[in-house]
Design a protein around this nucleic acid. Sequence first.
DNA 1: TTAATTTGTAACAAAATTGTAACATTTAAA
DNA 2: TTTAAATGTTACAATTTTGTTACAAATTAA
Lengths: 226, 226
Amino acid sequence: MNGKIFIIEDEPSIIQLVQHNLEKNGFIVSSSVNGNDGLKELKKFQPDLLLLDWMLPDLSGVEICKNIRKDTNYNNLPVIMLTAKGEEEDKIKGLDSGVDDYLTKPFSFNELMARIKAVLRRSNPNTVSDNLKFDDLMLDRIEKRVFRDDQEIKLGPTEFRLLEFFLTNPKRVYSRDQILESVWPNNVNVESRTIDVHIRRLRQSVNLKNKKELIRTVRSSGYSLI
Amino acid sequence: MNGKIFIIEDEPSIIQLVQHNLEKNGFIVSSSVNGNDGLKELKKFQPDLLLLDWMLPDLSGVEICKNIRKDTNYNNLPVIMLTAKGEEEDKIKGLDSGVDDYLTKPFSFNELMARIKAVLRRSNPNTVSDNLKFDDLMLDRIEKRVFRDDQEIKLGPTEFRLLEFFLTNPKRVYSRDQILESVWPNNVNVESRTIDVHIRRLRQSVNLKNKKELIRTVRSSGYSLI
DNA sequence: TTAATTTGTAACAAAATTGTAACATTTAAA
DNA sequence: TTTAAATGTTACAATTTTGTTACAAATTAA
């Protein structure tokens, strides 16, 4: 994951939280606490995405956004607007002003991350890699492909979701019930033994010859990656 | 185990006890002895969890909690409330104000630890590594693995549960009846001598060569770790 | 539509786990 | 020392759990 993100937001605690976490995720981040400074610094910083607070001490988020859209260099810059609760009615205006997405405070960082990825993917696909890796295995959620080392592995839909699920917490042992809940569509009733068969299919696909076993059976508990 | 815990509590002896033990368990800990300071410092400290005394010299725990919930940055902060005996009737109010759990003083540190883990696990699964350790033994409940020093020990399901049980209170001697109740599924009838056999199996697995005996027989009482 | 793929389940095979009985050894008391 | 009780050890059959295969139904692609 790489890319540059600029934040215009006047609450230092939000800046701190978001900036820190974004940097941990490989982004380069810079920020301003008001609109006028923000507009100037933004143009120096040349971000791939802008996080913009709705309420700012000087300019409003919408004004900033319109300003940006006028500038031919930035009229394509993806913008995610941060609005506080109770400003719901304004959302539509916000979107009209050329915002790509909006997020209502309070939000979890995961939620923000998901929006950022989604927006970046649309505007600039190369900025986002949405891959899960474990050992020599790599799963690409965007292209829905799986590789072991560099060899592609063809998986059926259920096998893919199953592996995807395990990869979100490799090594962790999941019971058949947990797997059912997370991998199968809700309110579908399948027997828990069905999982065994899918595990077998996944193993067969994933364990290319001369590769070590990747799926561990934990008797009376479930399965995990290993 | 890692994560940051903030404590707001006016009894120095409790702070000392809890802080010391939490730090021994790998947490980063900071604290305040009153509500107003606490609210300020808390925001600097950015904890993953808050231990909050019910009765404080200035603000009450509930007021603090409501205050926190209003702040978009902390409205998800897990809070465990500490109440003194005789305030039982207030418990419900406490929970209504957005507390995740409460604990009645006096409490054992183990009890507190268990609550902390449970709450953290819900809110922020990666903060908690759910390992039980004793001497050179380590049991990982998530991955369902056991190590002695760094050598992995393979255990059957019952052996695992048995060891897990002993590890929750190492050194404590458990009778065969207590072991049966806690380790075997309810309403299963097995002879108490069966435990002896499982102890033997566990010993065989756990006592790698040139390692000292870990399971002590207490004649006419039961078994314990040692 | 037909063909191909995917899916869930049943049925059987293989493997691991479990409880108990039987006998051996240790311990403590007489 | 002798004896009785408690625990250690071993072997084994029964049970439980998982692996594997085949197949029909359902879904998707051609």
